[in-house]
Write a protein that binds this DNA or RNA. Sequence first.
DNA 1: TTGTATGCGTTATCAT
DNA 2: ATGATAACGCATACAA
Lengths: 315, 315
Amino acid sequence: MVNLADVARQAHVSQMTVSRVINHPNLVSDEVRDLVNQAIKAVGYQPNRIAKALVNQQNYVIQFIVLEDIATVEPNYAILLLEIAEVLNQKGYTLEISTILEPNSHVDGLIVSGWRDSDLERLSAINVPMVLYGQAPTWYDLPYVDVNNRMGTSLATTHLIEAGYKKVIYIGMTMALPFVREREQGYLETMAKHHLVSRTYDVSNHSHDAEKLIQNIIAHLPKNTGIVCATDRIALGVVRALKAQSQIPENYGVVGFDGVFIDQITSPKLTTIKQPFRQLANTLVSNLLNQLHHSELKTELIQPRLVKRDSTRQV
Amino acid sequence: MVNLADVARQAHVSQMTVSRVINHPNLVSDEVRDLVNQAIKAVGYQPNRIAKALVNQQNYVIQFIVLEDIATVEPNYAILLLEIAEVLNQKGYTLEISTILEPNSHVDGLIVSGWRDSDLERLSAINVPMVLYGQAPTWYDLPYVDVNNRMGTSLATTHLIEAGYKKVIYIGMTMALPFVREREQGYLETMAKHHLVSRTYDVSNHSHDAEKLIQNIIAHLPKNTGIVCATDRIALGVVRALKAQSQIPENYGVVGFDGVFIDQITSPKLTTIKQPFRQLANTLVSNLLNQLHHSELKTELIQPRLVKRDSTRQV
DNA sequence: TTGTATGCGTTATCAT
DNA sequence: ATGATAACGCATACAA
């Protein structure tokens, strides 16, 4: 392992000068700085994160905590995790993954996902920099990053209206979580804005439930109806129920939400609201590192994107 | 932060004695050991991984490298990653995730997945302990862990035969990877063993392709046929193509492979070969840690499990 | 069986 | 502007 001493020897300066060139280059004269930089390249020096961590009393470890059952959201997490890991590694941090909330002293910061309202009390008691993935109630002072769920369903609803579907209904989820309410609100608001009558249904977030719901209400569902779904999973069930009559997208238009994996395996392919996971990952990480360095708390909503495919009419 | 010195003071012994109690308890007298252990609890000591890493010239970081396009296998990876992370954390290691092959000096070991044959040359040149996820050719001396793919399709084929399907065909993948060949072999062998005529087709690993294939060959496909699919994705397309006539499982039986996520969202629910991801994760990790400590190379195949659901007849 | 001295690679502090 | 020294927490080698 090549260390500071090796570089120092090569450049005929002291260890400290090398350390300064790396951490406080403006405190070093131009000539010496160039000399040292050359030496660093020549010997192939790579800073030792462990030694740095020891002296700085930091660990350069961020823990990603998944509190919900993975099975419910698998594809999303794979993407998000990989994005976060990449961003973190770039900044010299390591990502640790955990499924329980019990922060060890060796983590510098927490990214928490899949939490329920009942977790927030416990979370706000923990004295480690953290950022939540998912919109949290404001009365806890916990910074969060999320996609703008309300805007998402609003985009979906607008798209269906503009595509000429006469009636537009919403199929939501039976979960008391902020993002669930937000998605519903996005639909309701947009319908109100267009002076249209809204109609919502609730199912569990499983394709088979959504499929059954549609089979039950199909008799009362006029042709030329648009269906905004709270998730791609629900949309999958809806599409399956309607496909038998191959009435998509002529008689029924379907829009999902998430845009990960499921949207690609439906038939017809799903028009959906895509969560920008790369951007979410970037924002989560920079948010957290900002807290570590400058200790500012900040909450952010990221804009989603409508992806038009075959389950809705081309406008 | 409470350290060895704090414990030592509490127990009225030296730092070294405390260190010994932790690392070599048999070198310490019983009384002193008990005393120190009490002190450890009393002051709430937690070993500092960073300091340990520095002195041991280890980093306690394992890198998980995903070389293939994530989009093709998302759900599987989410599960595998979380399992690996959990096992690793238990053993005091941290998991780092990367999508490129360029091991930094700060990683102690590599778990490599999604590699192609063309990567193996480069991999075997890297001088860091590693284990591959996925069966590799034996002429590279790289240890790997994989599910027993051959046994998997064999289980699937046997199940269909025993369920009374007269003809059993196989839909495989157009990829030149060992595991692809293994899965096909499992089918072919089992058919031969039962003195049955085998018939294989190939498609890309996309549900839409599989769906088209079935639509094209359905005319020549006699009733009472069993279909072994190389993946759940393919099975999903097959089920979709056959569902219009709702002939599953009476006239056609379908078995998939993987058992992650997709199998739950098909309709009817998929009979499939389940990859034991928890066991795979455990084996991958213990394999790697064995290399780190005792430097033995070992390759292992894990047994998969047949999960009978609604896409095949109950025997 | 227990304790002392030393060093891992880095950086902050203080001195020059 | 540059360098010498000490310190972070732990474990190995050696001494007692």
